[in-house]
Design a protein around this nucleic acid. Sequence first.
DNA 1: TCCTACGATGGACACAGTCCAAGTCAAGAA
DNA 2: TTCTTGACTTGGACTGTGTCCATCGTAGGA
Lengths: 138, 138
Amino acid sequence: MSDLLDRLRGRGWRMTSQRRVVAQVLDGDHVHLTADEVHARAAALLPEISRATVYNTLGELVSLGEVIEVATDGRARRYDPNAHHPHHHLVCSECGTVRDVHPDRDPLTDLPARERFGFTVAAAEVTYRGLCPDCAKA
Amino acid sequence: MSDLLDRLRGRGWRMTSQRRVVAQVLDGDHVHLTADEVHARAAALLPEISRATVYNTLGELVSLGEVIEVATDGRARRYDPNAHHPHHHLVCSECGTVRDVHPDRDPLTDLPARERFGFTVAAAEVTYRGLCPDCAKA
DNA sequence: TCCTACGATGGACACAGTCCAAGTCAAGAA
DNA sequence: TTCTTGACTTGGACTGTGTCCATCGTAGGA
């Protein structure tokens, strides 16, 4: 994830301890934290970090295209650092766990012109829903 | 939409003026209102209706399967009365307009077993994003 | 080492949604 | 038709999520 820090520095980002900690917390695969979770984990490393800073930093990462915002339910947005590999999401309806998945086909190709209503369609996000192994057992 | 009222009565719903008004407001195609919008339109017909009742009624309609909850952004949930015809959504990134669309293929068939991580996958929702004709012009 | 513009802070605010105790009323019973 | 009752509605308090802003602090160039 120091790749990320390097890229950010290259873009003229001022490197502060707060930003470093937020980037560090977002490292890894299948990471889909809410802003509050990011704040909690960041605060474990840097106790004084404020909520506003976490929101600011996440917002910047999103507009730089380094992190993707995911709205799996109508509740808190989740932040996905896996922004450089196109993928979709599989969500457990019970516990909310999210996994990154890679379907065989891009759904964009399956939306015929007559169903586009004159829109310039740029992207398609798929949310698969079901039960994760743990919740299916219970 | 009196179909809906009939179905609800058949299911033992007590028919109150509030519920009638909420059902009436949700009538139509390409309707994707937020709870607050439903409340505003319902209040135009029945001024005393409360926010809590609108939320209760929407929640009941959703659990009866008569209305679908849509989370197109991380903000307010939207309510879609077109629950009996499977479809997906096309959202304008600029103004938020939503249209119902019908792709040629069900994306569920394109998620191979190795990408299911042991989940029991039940459904797939596709959100297409782009610019609507009006916003593309501006 | 000094400067300063960019970033961090925390507290107030706005919005979305939930919960609850008390009052109201739809619809079946008599 | 009136009575009864439990389901429904109400408004207000409360929680969670996200935004805004004035002020303070500091990274990094001169």
